[in-house]
Nucleic acid binder design. Structure first.
Lengths: 131, 131
DNA sequence: TTAATTGCAAAGGCTTTGCTATTCG
DNA sequence: CGAATAGCAAAGCCTTTGCAATTAA
């Protein structure tokens, strides 16, 4: 990893992210930062977000897969995703319905359901990393 | 919603999804189904997956946002996403570290962490829907 | 000075869509 | 027969990347 600078663009992006209480998309950050740096480009936004991720200054929400995955079981249940091979499997932990109620009671949201995804290494990738 | 048919293509896609124990991407389904219907097109795969979603025969994993969202807080915590306006906010429920251990003890996965996302209506969208 | 970074524009990669021909019911 | 669906290809949309000019350290 190369030595990182703190450019005014990178500074402004981090600032914009800190000012938002909800979690913006790259595009929303772009519009926010353009108030201060009108000619900043969207490419710069994306590049800086990726640098800030590398530096562990920010997080990407969900670490979700870059493209859709489908499940033939429509009942709510939890998943595991391997961080190495991206495989997604079911997890045998019953759906915790009381969590929805807990949130609904403590926040102003009207909660319908929730999803849980565990991340780590699947059996096969654990074996491979021992080689 | 229009009256749905059960074409051999739709049938084969559903079959392929049921046969996989892990959760495939559209592309993986495409390659699987082509063994039976060699000239099926990727557009048909996507269109049918969307129809099957509408019919509640299958689920899309995560219901995650279509594009990345960023978070200035790198510590693990849970999120709420509004199903109407897509806004993503923090939820004040402490990270349940014991869940990771529970899964690691009961499955063959090496679990590092997990994410939780609650879905429902945010305060503003609840108000709007009363109008 | 010089390696990192920016802007711009083009390219990538997954997903959707328009159109015509087919096919299920 | 008529509406829904398939195939094909083009378009869309978010994100990444190549390149020459600029800038932080």
């Amino acid at each position: 990893m190369s030595r990182k600078r703190m450019t005014k663009q990178r500074q402004a992006i981090l600032q914009a992210l800190n000012d938002k209480n909800c979690h913006p998309t790259a595009d929303e950050i772009y519009f926010e930062v353009r108030k201060k740096i009108p000619n900043i480009s969207l490419g710069t936004i994306y590049r800086n977000l990726n640098v800030l991720l590398e530096m562990n200054k920010i997080r990407e929400i969900y670490n979700s897969p870059k493209y859709a995955r489908y499940d033939a079981n429509p009942k709510p249940h939890y998943h595991f995703q391997c961080q190495k091979c991206d495989r997604v499997c079911d997890v045998h932990l019953p759906y915790q319905r009381d969590l929805d109620k807990l949130i609904a009671d403590n926040e102003l949201f009207d909660v319908h359901h929730h999803t849980v995804v565990f991340f780590g290494l699947c059996e096969e990738c654990q074996k491979k990393s021992k080689d």
